[in-house]
Design a protein around this nucleic acid. Structure first.
Length: 121
RNA sequence: AGAGUUGGCCGAGACAGUCGCUGUUUCAAUUUUUUGAAUCAGAGGAAAGUCCGGGCUCCAUAGGGCGAGAUGCCAGGUAAUGCCUGGGAAGCGAAAGCUUACGGAAAGUGCUACAGAAAAUAAACUACCAGAGAGAUUUGGCAAAGGUGAAAAGGUGCGGUAAGAGCGCACCGCGCAGCUGGUAACAGACGCGGCAUAGUAAACCCCAUCUGGAGCAAGACCAAAUAGGAGCUUAUGGUAAACAGCGUCGUUAUAGCUGGGUUACCCAGUGUGGCCCACACUUAAGCUCGGGUAGGUUGCUUGAGGUAUUUGGUGACAAAUAUCCUAGAUAAAUGACUGUCCACGACAGAACCCGGCUUAUUGGCUGACUCUACCU
């Protein structure tokens, strides 16, 4: 399977985000929070939110966003059929790259374990 | 060699491989449009702060005034500037060089703590000198000496005097007039005046010059659903009259029923309003129209552009010729992993585009100049 992450796999419009915010399940960590919802599609879609309160400098926000996207790209075969929003929490920018990466990977694992049943219904 | 001054350039460190993202071009498939393959391109010197100046877009605008803000030695450069270049003045440094919010204090108002007699309309505390008085003291002259302060009504010297004083003279400073040099700011020498306006305008203020407002979420185009708007068509309350049809033909009276919606009358609510009058509006369905939300397209990158050479200019810069095309995302692309090398990687991410300023920063390369020491 190809591990690509083209434009259609992104969550893009305001209404898409809003529908997930309105009714979704959540898993949280100290530094990250994910909201997710089934989407009746053969692929998953991802949106990343890194607010200015989390990291003041644009380059730090970009760094977090890229690490999350890269992790999603490599793990997407485990996560078919979900719309997911990842929200960075405060002091997320203090983490170095490997720990942040590990944190996200753990979240994917949790999501998979918790809702494995739903996928096969 | 050391110490120092001042310009310029480079800067996701470089190379290779694997996976991934955005766009251009070409080819193939596909109804649009999307997909696939190949190819090329893909953050900065500050992209930052948003502090100035322009372009561009929309709105406003006859002309002028008031107000507000900015700028403030002179000349030049520029699309323009509060920027840059050259020059002047003042200050700092041994020098190279650096710094300067550098118009006006005799238009007016205010402020000048503490100290001091006095901080500016009449200057005078201690002194000094003269007169009066036995004396305490008092009247007058004077601004040299004292002390205070950031600053005390020109400075130094000589003359002069009762004591003194620009009172007089010389030099310095200051002011004024013409002259010379300079485009000018300004400088220079000379002459005259006879000392007058203490400082503060990043205090109000005055003078001169400049400034319309908002910004790419500007603006332009396409445009679903829902609600609302405009127009057209159709349907739509009650009573009476007239009309048409049906119907009855018995008591032969024009009774009753139906239809169209022609005419007249009646009925309620809402809005404007304190109330009356008055005026306007009113229900349903369909079609059409324009505005417009979500969403999409555009603006969007060829430009006061870069590079090289020549010419003009002290320089900022300008002109000519040749040549190059170098990000265009939009919940927002430029990343991850592995290996090798070294200087061991700082500050930091385009969002309409340029010119500046300011701030952040690991380092590297390089030009020019000054001083000190030594050698030749």
């Amino acid at each position: 399977m190809q591990l690509s992450f083209p434009r259609q796999y992104h969550l893009r419009t305001k209404s898409e985000f809003k529908s997930i915010f309105d009714k979704s399940n959540r898993i949280s960590q100290k530094h990250l929070l994910i909201l997710f919802k089934q989407n009746q599609k053969e692929y998953s879609r991802l949106g990343v939110i890194v607010g200015k309160r989390v990291a003041k400098k644009a380059i730090a926000r970009n760094r977090i966003r890229r690490i999350v996207k890269e992790s999603f790209r490599l793990n997407q075969e485990k996560l078919l059929g979900w719309d997911i929003i990842v929200i960075a929490r405060q002091q997320c920018d203090t983490l170095n790259k490997p720990t942040l990466r590990k944190g996200i990977d753990d979240l994917w694992q949790k999501l998979q374990n918790q809702y494995r049943g739903c996928l096969f219904q």
